[in-house]
Nucleic acid binder design. Structure first.
Length: 472
DNA sequence: TTTTGAGTTGTTCGA
DNA sequence: GTCGAACAACTCAAA
């Protein structure tokens, strides 16, 4: 029998439009899909890690339907892959490329170690539409501004999406595998995984259903309504994109088709997907964007580290209803509406003068759609320290934003139980989760504002003004 | 090389 | 209530 191919699964939990699996199936050789719980995966935040476990379970079922399996191993990637090579006689290890600093470093080390050992170690594209090194400005080099990036990529061909392989040839003998349940990937979800689980839609089939529903419905009004947190106007696909339960190419092609038949909002939708591309473009070319100010002149800015205000922010108890609703949405559902993210982030970094990294870390712990590229770009954009960032004087006023984008109060009521005799389900879910985390109880009064909005705004602007003398 | 136009998402104030 | 200007300059990308 021919030597098997190890398909190293990472953020690509899908069978359709999976370039690695299709290539492997095309060889006719045995295929061994393997997921490694390596230090990088161990380092995931509570919610992303829990969500990973959900995704792995569904993906393993899908593989089984093709006569295959998902092998689970624990430990550093090089060791884990070497062990499997020894056990199975595999001479080939394939994977899909990732682009954040930690992944790039790990994959380089894996590639050189395996290549040195005579293994065919090869990576495939697929997690993004456009390889970051293939998008260059006229003078060469990466884009630092979104709009020209968008103009550069919008017309580029991405190729047709691939069908799922009909079958995957199993190896003569399957290597041993851990039991997913033993990994306890949800162990850190002390806020209650059951709460978030109600809102998650896991797996490739769910992702495809989401896409179809969106393109047959909400896409029409997407450009108009996507800014309203209370409207069900977005696709919700970020959760699935994160673990590759759907590929950006599947979404792009479907979006292009919708655009062709004149679906309003399709262009705006594609532009949002291009924002994700831009984030990956940035994190590949500037990996320090995850931890350091992208504009070093911001290093002198007097941001506060973690503090009591930030803790109130995390708990959804700042006394600012729209911000608190957003933070509770995050805790309960594992996601947050895009506009709410901007408002919550602006409030933390400007009104509360707290470093964007404090917020970035909390999002990384709570978001089931957590993505290293988008999270870093988003936080630095709001804070003002990032590429193509908001100007410093752009301070979101949560009250004004509420008036504009949640006029009816539906979004706030959905997540804030206080003052409601019969709160909606999501608000009750917060009540179920918060006591476990923080000892809060139903009877606790809604907190007073930590800072008046005008005062917070003035304080932020003054800090930025003062900082300018120091280089900002 | 120099120039030019443009740059996701806001708020406030005063006319 | 509505509207335009100010908020600050600077960097980026392309001509």
């Amino acid at each position: 029998m021919k030597a098997p191919i190890l398909c190293w699964i990472r953020r690509d939990l899908r069978l359709a439009d999976n370039q690695m699996l299709s290539a492997a199936a095309g060889t006719g050789r045995p295929v061994i899909p393997v997921f490694l719980l390596d230090p990088e995966a161990q380092a995931l935040g509570a919610a992303p890690k829990w969500r990973l476990g959900q995704g792995l379970a569904v993906f393993a079922d899908g593989l089984q339907a093709l006569g295959s399996r998902l092998i689970l191993r624990r430990g550093p990637a090089v060791e884990g892959l070497r062990a499997l090579i020894d056990e199975t006689g595999a001479d080939t290890v394939w994977w899909h490329r990732l682009y954040d600093g930690a992944s790039v470093a790990r994959d380089r080390a894996v590639k050189s170690a395996l290549t040195e050992a005579g293994i065919d170690a090869r990576s495939f594209p697929g997690h993004v539409l456009f390889e970051p090194w293939k998008v260059e400005t006229g003078s060469g080099g990466p884009y630092r501004v979104y709009s020209p990036f968008w103009r550069a990529v919008r017309g580029r061909p991405v190729g047709a999406s691939l069908r799922a392989p009909a079958t995957l040839v199993p190896p003569a003998a399957w290597p041993g595998s851990d039991d997913l349940a033993d990994w306890r990937l949800g162990a850190a979800m002390n806020r209650g995984a059951g709460v978030v689980a109600k809102y998650a839609r896991v797996g490739a089939a769910a992702a495809q259903a989401r896409l179809d529903e969106f393109l047959h419905g909400a896409v029409t009004d997407y450009a108009r309504l996507r800014d309203f947190p209370g409207a069900a106007a977005t696709s919700g696909l970020s959760e699935n994109l994160t673990y590759g339960e759907i590929s950006p190419r599947q979404i792009w092609n479907a979006g292009l088709a919708a655009l062709e038949v004149g679906a309003g909002g399709a262009e705006t939708f594609l532009k949002e997907l291009a924002w994700r591309e831009f984030a990956y473009h940035l994190i590949y070319h500037f990996p320090a964007i995850e931890r350091d100010n992208w504009r070093p002149e911001w290093d002198a800015f007097p941001w506060r580290g973690d503090n009591a205000d930030a803790e109130a922010w995390r708990r959804g108890r700042t006394g600012e209803p729209l911000v608190d609703a957003a933070m509770r949405e995050l805790l309960v559902t594992g996601t947050m509406h895009n506009r709410a993210r901007m408002i919550a982030a602006s409030y933390l970094t400007k009104h509360l003068l707290t470093h964007w990294r404090v917020g970035l870390d909390w999002f990384a712990d709570c978001l089931i759609d957590w993505d290293p590229a988008s999270n870093a770009m988003g936080w630095q954009w709001v804070a003002g320290s990032g590429p193509d960032a908001a100007p410093y004087f752009r301070v979101f006023n949560p009250a004004t934003q509420a008036e504009k984008f949640d006029k009816s109060g539906a979004y706030r009521r959905n997540f804030l139980h206080e003052g409601q005799s019969d709160p909606p389900e999501a608000a009750c879910d917060f009540l179920a989760a918060a006591p476990r985390l923080w000892g809060l109880s139903r009877g606790d009064e809604y907190p007073a504002r930590r800072i008046e909005l005008a005062e917070g705004r003035a304080r932020a602007l003054a800090a930025y003004q003062a900082g300018k003398g120091g280089g900002v």
